[in-house]
Every structure is written in C-alpha cells, then in structure tokens.
C-alpha cells in the first residue's frame, strides 16, 4: 500500500512538473526573445536573455506604423471602465434578487441564468447595425456600456450574497433610517469588496483580451486596442518586421495581466469555482 502510494505520488509530481514546465516554457521564450535584438533572434534559439530590452521597448513604443501607446491607453481605459460598471451593476442586480421579495423575483433569476450562455457573437450583426444607427461606430461607448448586463458576474454575486450577506444587516440599516440606495452603496458594497475585486479582475481581463467585437467597432488608428494591434502585426508582412518588437508587443499585452494574476491567484482560483456549479 505504502509503496504503491509513493509510486503514484512520484508519477503525479512528474506529470504536474511537465505540465507546469509546458505552461511556463512559452512565456519564458517570449520574455527571453523580448530582450534580444532582431539579428540575435534570427541567429537562433537561446535560453539566456539578451541586452536589448530597452531598445526593443523604445522601438515598439515609437513605431510609426503601430500606435502602441494609444493601444495601451485605450485598452486600459476600456477594460477599467467595463470592469467597474460590470461589477457594480451586477452586484446591484444580485442584491435586488437577494434582498427583496417581489413577484417576479424567481422568474428574473431564472431568466438571467437562461441567457448566461448565449454568446455575444450571435447578436453582433444586430449590435453593429444598432450602434451604426446610434452614431456610436468607432467609439468606446459600445465596448463599455454593454458590460453592465453581465449574467456570469451576476450569478457569482448571487451565490456570494447567499453565503456572506445576512439580511439582518440590511434590516438594522433600515431601522437606523438608511434609505435603500444608501444601504447598498455604503453598507453592502464594503461587505462584498473581496467578491468585487475578484470579479473585477475577471471582467478586466476579459475586456483587455477581447478581440472580436472591438475589431469590428473600432476603425481609426488612434482608437484601436492592443488585441487589434497584435492581429495587425500578424497581417503585416512578417519578414520585414523587427522580431524584437513583435515579442515586445506581445509581452506588453500579456505580462501586466500575468503579474496581476500571480499576485492575486489565491482569490482568483477560489473565484473560478464559486462562479459556476456549486459542488
């Protein structure tokens, strides 16, 4: 029994190490190549970093054909605004379901779960013609406002309220004369801060990485977000491009999110399960 268990453990460690190696290896290659100059990269693979991190960063930020600085600012703005709106409105919606007893409460809850899995892609055609009529083409508004209706975040928030917000707190706030909106903003929101943070990060990452809709909405060069610029890099004539800059731009798109994730991974991994089926 003991021997079998030790063998099983050894196999487990080997498989886990190999998979972890696989996950980290490509990022390692990315970061190494982002520090090497184009001729160094062309010469071949290396496990050791080069000395061109600074020049690569400078070159990609000053590239005349790719508005990278605009891309970073646009991505940051759209992702932050969507994340903030998404978590606030989802919490408000979940609070309505959790704290109030009204006639259609259950129906509303079931309806939101029902629409949860419908992908945005299938409504994109209607979405594009609508925002065209509203004069919102090539604007950030249609990328930010729709995040207020986020059924997945709502579902997570409802579960969180059920286990973390006793209604007695709401009751006592009422007795103290707090109005409902005030109670939500100044009593409920502070209690659910951890959940807001986790879902905020998920929403930020989803928006930061989003490519399909932004590529159809944003037209002018200075409005483009990072995923569009990366795809543009792919469609440009590859061989004419400075590979150091290619790797650097990918690093810019990937590494900040990876660092935020690694700092908060404990909460994020907890949030993955809480937002889905309860075990």
């Amino acid at each position: 029994m003991g021997k079998a268990m030790n063998l099983k453990k050894a196999v487990a460690y080997i498989v886990l190490s190999l998979l972890s190696f696989l996950c980290l290896f490509f990022f390692y290659c990315l970061i190494i190549n982002a520090t090497r100059s184009h001729p160094e990269i062309a010469k071949g693979f290396s496990f050791l970093p080069g000395k061109s991190f600074g020049p690569n960063l400078y070159n990609v930020l000053h590239n005349k054909n790719l508005p990278v600085v605009h891309g970073i600012v646009n991505s940051l703005f759209v992702a932050s605004a969507s994340a903030a709106l998404s978590v606030y409105v989802s919490a408000l919606t979940a609070y309505a379901i959790h704290a109030y007893d009204f006639k259609f409460r259950n129906a509303v809850y079931l309806f939101i779960i029902l629409i949860m899995m419908i992908p945005t892609q299938v409504t994109t055609l209607g979405f594009l013609s609508l925002i065209g009529k509203m004069g919102l083409m090539d604007s950030f508004v249609p990328l930010i406002l729709p995040s207020m209706a986020a059924p997945v975040v709502f579902y997570f928030m409802v579960s969180y309220f059920q286990s973390n917000l006793p209604l007695e707190i709401v009751e006592s706030a009422r007795i103290d004369g707090s109005n409902e909106f005030f109670t939500f903003n100044y009593i409920v929101i502070p209690i659910i801060k951890p959940a807001l943070a986790v879902q905020g990060i998920f929403a930020f990452v989803a928006s930061w990485n989003n490519y399909f809709v932004p590529s159809l909405v944003l037209k002018s060069n200075t409005k483009k977000t990072l995923p569009i610029l990366i795809a543009q890099l792919r469609s440009a004539d590859f061989l004419k491009f400075d590979m150091g800059q290619v790797y650097m731009l990918i690093t810019i798109a990937v590494v900040p999110v990876a660092i935020i994730y690694l700092c908060l991974s404990k909460f994020i991994i907890g949030g993955v399960t809480a937002g889905s089926v309860k075990g």
Binding site: L16, L19, S20, C23, L24, F26, F27, C29, L30, N33, V205, W208, N209, Y211, L226, P227, I230, A231, L233, R234, M243, V246, Y247, L249, I250, A253, V254, V257, A258, Y261, L262, S265, I268, I269, V272
Partner: peptide, 24 residues
Amino acid sequence: FFKTIIYLPNVIMAASFAMLFFAL
C-alpha cells in the same frame, strides 16, 4: 503552486498567444 501555474495560460490574451505561437 501547481494550480496557479496551470491556470496562468487562461488569463493570457488569446490573440497574443496565437501571435506568440506563430512566431515560435
């Protein structure tokens, strides 16, 4: 530690991940 590492690729931008693979 292992859970953190194996979840990491999920937060990576798919477009840039594809571009990285194209280059590699």
